[in-house]
Design a binder for these strands. Structure first.
Lengths: 158, 158
DNA sequence: GGTACTCGGATACGTTGTGTCCGAGTCAAG
DNA sequence: CTTGACTCGGACACAACGTATCCGAGTACC
C-alpha cells in the first residue's frame, strides 16, 4: 500500500481543527515531510472531492464535508485508487484444460474468496470516519492536542 | 498485491487432485504461464513449508499438509510476505508539534483503524482453506473437473 | 556409473510508487 | 487598475519493487 495514505489521513484529521484554509507547505512543515510530495497527495484528495482548494494569497485546503461524513475508505481509495488489490487473470480459461467460457459466467472460487476478504476490509475502513479518528486522538492525548495544532496554524512559525 | 498469488492458489488447488509429485514445468503448461516465474512462486511456497519438493527424475511438488489444514492466508503470506500492507511511520513524533515519545506507548488512532481493517481481511482469508476452494470448484464445474486435471497430469502431453 | 530430470538461487527488465520541479491561475493589497 | 506574491495543478526524473529469465547444484532412476 502507498505510504502517502498515512500522510493524507493525518492531514484530514488536522483539517478538522482548522477553519481557515491550510496550505500544503504548512501541512508539510507540521509533519516534517516532503512538501512537494504531500502536495501530490492533496491533489489526489482534491480530485476525489474530499477537499476543496482555494487559491490566491490566503489559499489552501479545506474539507468539503463534515468530518463525520468522510470515511477512511474514501481517503484510501482517493490515494491508492478505487481498484481492488487482487485482480483475477482468469487463468482458468487458459491452457490445455481450459474451462469453457460459457461456464465462466460467475467468478471462480479463488476470486470469490479474495473479493470477500477485501469486502470485509473495506467495510472496516468504511465504518470509521475522520471525526472518529479525531475523537480517538483527543481521547489519547487530551482535548488540547488538536486545539494546539489549530492555534499553531494561526501563528507565524513553529 | 502480487499477481503471483493467483497462480500459487490455483496450483495448490490442483495439487489437491494429484497424488504424485507435480513438476513446476507441468503446472506452468497447464495454466499457460511463464514456467520460470511460476517456479519462483513455488519456491516461496516451499520456503514457507506449505509444499515439499522432491528432486530427481520423477520429482515435483506435493502438499505437506491435508488441504483442510492450509488456509488461503498462508499462501498469501508466503508469496506477498507476512508484513502488513500499511506501515505506520510515526509522523506524530516529528515536526514542531511532535507528540512526546512518552505519550506514544500505544499506536495512534489511524494505525489502529488500519490494523483493525487488516485483521478483518486476514480473518476472512484464514477462514477459507484450500479444501474449501477445491469444493467450490467442484460445485461450480462438477466433480469431474478436478479429476480430469488429475488424469491429465498422468498423461504424456496436453 | 551414467544420464536425464528436478529444484534452487543469482541475474536482467519493466512498471509502479516516490520525490521534485516549474508554470498557470487567483486573491489581496497598494 | 496595477502590481505583487502566494497558491494550486500538472509535467518531469529517480528509485524500488514486482516481473521475467537463465544457468548451476542435487537427486533418483536406468
Amino acid at each position: 500500500m502507498s505510504g502517502g495514505v498515512e500522510w493524507a489521513l493525518h492531514c484530514c484529521v488536522v483539517l478538522t481543527s482548522v477553519d481557515e484554509p491550510a496550505p500544503a507547505a504548512r501541512l508539510a512543515q507540521l509533519h516534517d515531510v516532503s512538501p512537494s510530495y504531500l502536495a501530490k497527495q492533496l491533489q489526489a484528495l482534491s480530485r476525489a472531492g474530499l477537499v476543496r482548494s482555494v487559491q490566491g494569497k490566503a489559499g489552501g485546503y479545506v474539507l468539503t464535508r463534515p468530518p463525520s461524513e468522510i470515511t477512511v475508505l474514501d481517503v484510501v481509495e482517493a490515494i491508492d485508487g478505487p481498484g481492488p488489490a487482487f485482480t483475477c487473470t482468469e487463468i482458468r480459461q487458459r491452457g490445455p484444460m481450459a474451462t469453457p467460457p460459457e461456464a465462466c459466467t460467475a467468478p471462480c472460487a479463488i476470486s470469490r474468496a479474495m473479493a470477500n476478504a477485501e469486502a470485509q476490509w473495506r467495510a472496516a475502513l468504511r465504518a470509521v470516519s475522520i471525526a472518529d479518528l479525531a475523537d480517538g486522538v483527543r481521547g489519547d492525548y487530551g482535548p488540547g492536542a488538536l486545539a494546539g495544532i489549530g492555534a499553531w496554524f494561526k501563528a507565524a512559525d513553529g
